[in-house]
Design a binder for these strands. Structure first.
Lengths: 150, 150
DNA sequence: TCTTGACTTAAAGTTTACTTTAACTTGTAT
DNA sequence: ATACAAGTTAAAGTAAACTTTAAGTCAAGA
């Protein structure tokens, strides 16, 4: 099965201009041409899905391109690619951990506003420090080094 | 305890210019001045932590400013603020779910390269479709509507 | 007193990732 | 045949979030 750029754009939920941009940046080297038109295959969706993941963790286009170039060079770059993937996996896990902390923060806020709305005001809440979900994040990060230490 | 902009920058791990930028965008309305210098208090760290969370989910500065303005208006905006927090909480949960899917993708890639490196080549792997961790993501998203459907 | 470091501002510059435009080609339907 | 929809390119434009620059203020230490 093959697809035009417009079909791929619709399937992936992105404008065609984005796909052309990726292509122009060397991110879609496998896409062949027919009468000048780009022709996408099923396997290209696999790569687009990986590409999406790389974008999700804010991997810059330039770095994704590096990966693509390694792929192009074949088996001799397997280790280098493996290293990149491991690094990105770490990044994604760290990102998930940070987002989990943020989720806690918003859960606290949710409780805060529910309580404030019930009371009709947040005045009392500001000083009230009991009966609330635990917020196990320090106000000042633990890794902070004060001036006299350095 | 009060802090200069430089101290806050060091604690939060951002350049002072970023904090000045946030201030210029109206994101730090509580920070008072002494001889023209910004003076941060402990409570400002609480807000900076929330601000970080909002940034983490790519909430635009303009929308964070909206939230700040609601806070400034007091109790009459409690419901509106609660709604914003709920929306952001949803966003963050969706984002975590997407990142989990990406983590799976990278876990598959990890297995892929481990296997390829052992074999010395990825040639065979391309067609080999047994003995591999399940990748439960479709190549073409299920929600895709083909042309004749619309 | 003078220098130094940390602060201040407004304004211009930078980066990244697209998006838009303009001019053109091609395949399909009437 | 002709029009239309969808594709093509190179180049210019955009948006957001900072970052840098330039010119100045201020307090503290030598």
């Amino acid at each position: 099965m093959s697809y035009s750029i417009g079909e791929v754009a619709k399937i992936m939920g992105v404008p065609t201009s984005t796909l052309r941009y990726y292509d122009s940046m060397g991110l879609l080297p496998e896409v062949r041409r027919e009468n000048g038109r780009r022709v996408f295959e099923d396997r290209d969706f696999k790569w687009l899905r990986v590409l999406n993941c790389m974008k999700k963790i804010n991997m810059p286009v330039s770095k994704i391109k590096e990966y693509v170039e390694l792929v192009q060079q074949g088996d001799s770059t397997l280790e280098a690619r493996y290293a990149m993937i491991l690094e990105q996996k770490q990044n994604i896990e760290q990102e998930i951990a940070e987002l989990e902390r943020c989720r806690k923060e918003f859960e606290y806020k949710e409780w805060y506003y529910q309580t404030a709305i019930k009371a009709g005001t947040e005045k009392d809440l500001a000083t009230l420090m009991v009966d609330r979900p635990t917020l196990d994040i320090d106000i000042i990060p633990k890794n902070y080094k004060s001036k006299e230490v350095e």
